[in-house]
């Protein structure tokens, strides 16, 4: 089944994640659908559960209850092979998490070769194309420690893309970067959005949310407080918590 633009590819129902029994409700009943081609931007104050939500989508966090359906498969079910599904969900972390013992090329081809059974030649050919897309074709043989933060994050993005995922998850991809490097990473994300990639981004970059996002989700205390088009969220916020949050960040 190949999803078409507008089809639901991730469906989240009443997702809850508690820590310490019920003492900490990181997620307190999240329900939302993510459709193909959408760029969903998740915003909210610190500790509101944004990361927990994003990381639940590929089960890096195991939800306490609720269901997540990805391409029609309930990923929280015991029968599901989560490793198979994660191949189709790229993830980009705040701290890049490149593999420091491997060259950029090896970082990018490890997954395709070992998990998708691609030949080395084919994997490297594709990796070079991807590196070209982010302007780093000449750094294939470098080690991560030899790159700047912005370059590392661009590599992390194409490493995830090398698996040809259906959806890309970003957890504050620019928060660990020096200000002058934020632009180059956002630019790559913008290009990616334009190419039709389905994206879920936790970010504090309101400019990006406004310009690239197709939908903004505002979270607080583990709940979705408001979700709407960027236009509506930024010019016509309803909930007073969103209003005060925007006042602080804009």
């Amino acid at each position: 089944m190949i999803a078409e633009k507008g089809d639901v590819i991730i469906s989240v129902k009443d997702l809850k994640k508690y820590y310490n029994g019920e003492a900490i409700k990181a997620l307190d009943g999240i329900t939302t659908d993510i459709k193909k081609g959408e760029v969903v931007v998740v915003i909210g104050p610190s500790g509101s559960g944004k990361s927990t939500f994003l990381r639940s989508l590929n089960l890096l966090e195991r939800p306490t209850s609720g269901t997540i359906t990805f391409n029609g498969t309930d990923i929280t079910s015991k029968e599901t092979d989560i490793n198979k599904l994660r191949q189709k969900m790229g993830m980009v972390f705040q701290h890049f998490n490149l593999f420091p013992h491997l060259t950029i090329m090896k970082n990018m081809t490890l997954g395709p070769i070992k998990l998708r059974g691609m030949s080395k030649v084919e994997a490297e050919k594709r990796a070079k194309l991807l590196l070209g897309r982010v302007g780093l074709q000449d750094r294939a043989d470098a080690y991560p420690s030899q790159l700047s933060g912005g370059q590392k994050q661009r590599i992390a993005i194409v490493r995830a893309l090398a698996m040809e995922p259906d959806v890309m998850l970003f957890d504050e991809p620019t928060s660990a970067l020096d200000p002058e490097m934020v632009g180059e990473v956002l630019e790559v994300m913008k290009q990616l959005a334009k190419s039709g990639m389905t994206m879920v981004c936790v970010t504090h970059e309101m400019g990006f949310a406004r310009e690239v996002g197709t939908r903004v989700i505002f979270m607080d205390c583990g709940k979705i407080i408001e979700e709407n088009t960027p236009e509506q969220i930024f010019t016509n916020p309803q909930n007073e918590r969103l209003v005060s949050f925007l006042k602080k960040v804009l």
Partner: peptide, 12 residues
């Protein structure tokens, strides 16, 4: 994060 990066690529 190294562990999570590996897992998120789909490695068991």
């Amino acid at each position: 994060g190294q562990f999570e990066a590996g897992r998120s690529l789909g490695f068991g």
